[in-house]
C-alpha cells in the first residue's frame, strides 16, 4: 500500500524481478499441471482437451470449465499399477533414508570430532563428489555392478560367492545408487549441527557420572536433531520422485513413480495422466516439503 509506494525503486526491483520470474516459471506451471490433469487425452496438438481459448470470451471459459473432468484421477485410483508405484517409491525412499542416516551420522560425527585442522579438508572431500555429474556417478556403478563387473570379480576372488550374483536390475542396486548419490546431502546438515556443539557438555556429563553411551543419547543426539531432520528431508523428498537411478540401476519389474510418470509422458504420450500423477505426487510430498521450508526459513531468516 502506501508503504510500498514510498519504497525506493531499488527495493521494489529486487523484490519484483525475481518474484515475477518465479511466478511465471514455477507457480504458473504448477497451475497448468493441475489444469491438464483435469483434461482428457486427445489426438491433437497439444495432445489434450479442452484447450483454453482466451479469445472465446466468457462463453468459451464456461465451456472450458464444463469440459474438465476427473477421469484421469478415476483411472489413477482404479488401476493398482499406479497405487503400487507410489507405494514402492515411498517404501524405497523411506528405507534408503534410514540407511543414509545409519551411514551418514557416523561419518558426520567422525568429521566433527576430527582435529580442527583437517576438518575443512574432510568437509571438502565429502562435497566434492556432489560437484561431479550425478549421471556419471550412477554410470560408474553400472560398471561395478554388472554381471562380469568388479564387485562380482572381487567377491568371487575372495570366495564369498561361488557364482556371479545378479546385482544390476535389482532393488539392491537402486538402494546402492540412492545411498551413494544422496550421502553428501545427509552428512552435511548433520555435520553442521555437530560441528557447533560444545564438547564441554560431554565432559560435564562425564564428570557427573553419565556413561558415554548415555551421554551420546541424552546430549549429542538432541543437539544433532535439527541436522538429522534436515538431512532426512533433503534426501527423502527428491528420492520419492527419483527417475535416473531406478531407470539405470533398477529392474523392469519395479517401477518407481518417477519412471511411471516418464513412461506415461514420453512413451504413452498421455499428458493428462502424467499431470495427474504429478499432482498426486505433490500432494503426497506437500507435508515434508512444507516442513523442509520451515526449517530452511528458520535457518536462513530466523537467525538474525
Amino acid at each position: 500500500m502506501s508503504a510500498t509506494g514510498k519504497r525506493p525503486l531499488g527495493a521494489r526491483l529486487i523484490v519484483w524481478v525475481p518474484y515475477l520470474w518465479l511466478a511465471l516459471f514455477f507457480l504458473v506451471p504448477l497451475a497448468i499441471v493441475l489444469k491438464i490433469s483435469l483434461s482428457q487425452n486427445a489426438l491433437a496438438q497439444p495432445p489434450y482437451l479442452p484447450v483454453f481459448d482466451i479469445s472465446a470470451g466468457w462463453q468459451g471459459a464456461r465451456e472450458f470449465f464444463g469440459a474438465l473432468s476427473f477421469e484421469t484421477y478415476t483411472l489413477l485410483f482404479s488401476d493398482s499399477l499406479y497405487f503400487f508405484s507410489y507405494l514402492k517409491s515411498l517404501e524405497i525412499a523411506g528405507l534408503a533414508t534410514l540407511i543414509l542416516l545409519l551411514i551418514g551420522f557416523p561419518i558426520a560425527y567422525g568429521i566433527a570430532r576430527s582435529p580442527r585442522r583437517v576438518q575443512p579438508i574432510l568437509f571438502l572431500l565429502v562435497i566434492l563428489p556432489f560437484w561431479t555429474s550425478f549421471l556419471i556417478r550412477i554410470y560408474a556403478w553400472i560398471n561395478i555392478l554388472q554381471r562380469d563387473g568388479l564387485l562380482n570379480d572381487v567377491l568371487l576372488a575372495l570366495g564369498v560367492i561361488a557364482q556371479p550374483v545378479v546385482w544390476l536390475s535389482t532393488d539392491t542396486a537402486i538402494y546402492i545408487g540412492l545411498v551413494y548419490s544422496y550421502l553428501p546431502f545427509m552428512v552435511l546438515p548433520i555435520y553442521a549441527t555437530l560441528e557447533k556443539m560444545d564438547e564441554a557438555l560431554l565432559e560435564a556429563a562425564a564428570d557427573l557420572g553419565c556413561p558415554r553411551a548415555k551421554a551420546f543419547w541424552l546430549v549429542t543426539l538432541p543437539i544433532a536433531r535439527p541436522g538429522v531432520v534436515a538431512g532426512a528431508l533433503l534426501c527423502f523428498i527428491p528420492m520419492v520422485g527419483e527417475f535416473v537411478i531406478p531407470d539405470l540401476l533398477g529392474g523392469s519389474q519395479t517401477a518407481m513413480i518417477g519412471q511411471t510418470l516418464w513412461v506415461e509422458f514420453f512413451s504413452n504420450k498421455d499428458w493428462p495422466v502424467a499431470a495427474a500423477i504429478t499432482v498426486v505426487l505433490l500432494c503426497l510430498l506437500v507435508v515434508p516439503i512444507v516442513l523442509y521450508e520451515h526449517l530452511q526459513k528458520r535457518a536462513l531468516e530466523g537467525a538474525r
Binding site: P238, G241, F243, F265, T278
Partner: peptide
C-alpha cells in the same frame, strides 16, 4: 515468495520438468 524459492531445492525433478514443459506448450 519464500515458498517458491525453497520448494524447487527438494522438489523431484520430474515435477519441475513436466510443469515447465506444459508451460512452454501452453
Amino acid at each position: 515468495f519464500s515458498g517458491a524459492i525453497y520448494a524447487p531445492l527438494v522438489m523431484p525433478e520430474v515435477i519441475t520438468g513436466l510443469s515447465l514443459l506444459l508451460l512452454f506448450v501452453a
